[in-house]
Simulated assay, not measured.
Amino acid sequence: MTKMIFVNLPVRDLPVARTFYEAVGATNNPQFTDETAACMVFSETINVMLLTHAKWATFTTKPISDAHKAGEVMLALSCDSRDAVDAMVDAAGKAGGIADCNPLQDYGFMLNRSFQDPDGHVWEAVWMDPQGMPAHG
């Protein structure tokens, strides 16, 4: 079986978060969605579980950090092209997130732009051409 990842994120407003993730390219899996959670699918192996704060509290007793004030995690999603990176980050900004919350990194063979979702979780949209990477040695 292929390994999958389910990124679990606490969100303040589930409908707002779901709309945001749809705007940046995820689709909703209704099989794992209800009034407390939404499963947002980026690929066959990448899923983001958006959890209300009440639902989140059923999984851990740790307090929910305010991602607007403190770093918690930075998640990177690969994109098929430089244009796809730009489209994802631009869509994030238009959908209520913050585009380019970290400095753009453009190395020619690799482009990395970041954005925050409405809850402050940081994502990177990354494109890389492995054939263009500098040789090590």
Rank of each mutant, 00 (worst) to 15 (best):
V41F: 05
D119R: 08
W56A: 06
N47C: 13
G96H: 04
T27F: 08
I64S: 10
L51H: 02
A23Y: 07
F115K: 07
D117F: 03
Q131G: 08
D106A: 15
I46Q: 13
M88P: 03
V24A: 10
G97A: 06
A23Q: 08
P15Q: 09
L50S: 05
A26I: 01
L111C: 09
V122H: 04
V48C: 05
D117Q: 02
S81K: 10
T27K: 12
S43E: 03
G71W: 00
N102V: 03
A125S: 15
D106N: 14
P63F: 06
R113E: 09
D86S: 06
W127G: 08
D66I: 10
A54Y: 00
D129F: 11
H121E: 11
C101H: 01
V11F: 03
F109G: 08
G137V: 01
V85S: 11
P15M: 01
P10D: 03
P63H: 10
Q105K: 07
V126K: 03
P30C: 02
A91L: 13
G108T: 10
G71E: 10
L51C: 05
D66C: 12
A135T: 11
V11K: 04
F32E: 02
L14I: 02
V7M: 13
T27S: 15
N112M: 15
G71A: 09
C39I: 00
D34Y: 11
N47K: 13
I98D: 03
V85G: 12
F59H: 11
D86N: 15
S65E: 11
T45M: 09
R12P: 06
W123L: 15
F20L: 11
M128T: 04
L75M: 09
C39R: 01
M40G: 04
G71N: 08
A92C: 10
M74T: 10
N28Y: 00
T58H: 04
T19E: 15
T52L: 14
I98R: 02
V89C: 14
T60I: 06
V85R: 09
L9I: 14
N102Q: 07
A26D: 01
P15T: 00
V48F: 12
V126C: 14
N112V: 15
P10H: 01
V73F: 10
F109I: 01
M110E: 08
E22H: 03
D86H: 14
K62T: 05
P10F: 03
D13G: 06
A38T: 09
K62W: 04
Q116H: 10
W127N: 05
D86I: 11
E22R: 12
Q131W: 08
R12T: 14
Y21P: 13
P30W: 02
V89L: 14
Q116I: 09
L9K: 02
V16C: 14
N102K: 10
K62L: 11
Q116D: 06
C79A: 12
L51F: 06
V48E: 04
G120R: 00
P103N: 03
A76D: 00
P130L: 13
